[in-house]
Design a protein around this nucleic acid. Structure first.
Lengths: 190, 190
DNA sequence: ACGGCGTTGATACGCCCGTATCATCAAAGG
DNA sequence: CCTTTGATGATACGGGCGTATCAACGCCGT
């Protein structure tokens, strides 16, 4: 079987477990069972658990990036910078079941990196990439104020809304409404 | 020794471990060592680990509430609703070492409750209390728009800023500046 | 045809976890 | 004074963890 496909399959198993029973429940044995493979296989593709978790974090980052890319492309070619900005941000809200899984697993993992100095740098690198992307989008959309500041605030808001949706305080629709209302206000001040 | 004081002492040990080495490192033995007591004592005051963690969550909620209360009282008596609102929110940012410890431990714990249906309700109850408080403050301060909506957005922003500070993306001062700038805009629209 | 090597599986090992057990101790009440 | 009860300590136990070991298997080039 293809090497990369196997790794994806196992990483997906970790994500499923983390999103349903929590990351602590994702032991090597549980992951193997969830992926439908033997424990030895998991060890074969990921020599240690740290390596597995690092791969999962990368996997999640790639999934999120892919979602953003797809959302932007779905806009069609003559898309305004503003539309691209909205699409980028709303796609990252845990609205459907898939994005909920991804964001939940990502959050759980990210929280762990907060107290693990070795992986802390890796944890924020994805966030920085998103920050740069959104900063550029703010600049292109010519909103008022400093694009970097706008991006920082909006991404913090996004992060908080993600948490609130995961915690069940808001539905995905409510969070999207709050987010777009925030953006609308920014554009109203142009 | 006093019963409540012992429980506080042990809960504080959990917080210290969670904030430095992560919540997974907070085993019963590690907690006992950090608190300078025997393992048996931890078991005596908290019959099971679940009970200990639940008490820690309550402890953290109380600490945060106390900080908010203190910050408001420090304003002196003739304080405007707006000043109270600013004080409430900025105190919850992980600026000093103590609040960083509290917020970090709280976040780690909160993340766990996301995939633990039994404790999920308990996890959001504190958040709801804060939401109600801030909603009332927005209403008193007579900002434009629906107070509940303003509170929801602002708290999501606060939550996201907390995360970004913990992750090292922003300093406490930067986060405070972003937060107050957000509030200033709301008040500018009055 | 076959030998070698990348791949898979079953099982073992040592460690640390949460929890339980048993003994000791201090102080208060009859 | 003695006993009883709550508090503390030392140690044991079963289980699940990450990891390592060793055997069996399949495929592919020569």
């Amino acid at each position: 079987m293809d090497h990369e496909e196997r790794r994806h399959q196992i990483a997906e198993a970790v994500v499923r477990i983390a999103a349903t029973r929590g990351l602590p429940a994702a032991s090597m044995r549980e992951v193997a069972a969830e992926a439908g493979v033997s424990l030895r296989l998991v060890q074969y593709y990921f020599h240690t658990k740290q390596e597995l978790l690092a791969a999962v974090l990368t996997h999640l980052g790639a999934q999120l990036s892919a979602r953003v890319r797809r959302a932007i492309q779905a806009l069609g070619e003559p898309a305004t910078p503003r539309a691209r900005l909205y699409a980028t941000l709303t796609t990252l809200l845990p609205a459907d079941e898939e994005s909920r899984r991804i964001v939940l697993a990502y959050t759980a993992h990210f929280t762990l990196t907060l107290t693990d100095p070795d992986q802390a740098a890796k944890g924020v690198s994805h966030a920085n990439g998103l920050r740069d992307l959104v900063t550029g989008q703010f600049a292109q959309a010519r909103v008022s104020g400093d694009p970097a500041t706008r991006a920082a605030v909006t991404l913090a808001l996004l992060s908080g809304l993600q948490m609130s949706v995961l915690a069940g305080q808001h539905t995905g629709e409510q969070a999207e409404a709050l987010l777009t209302a925030h953006l609308d206000e920014l554009f109203r001040q142009r």
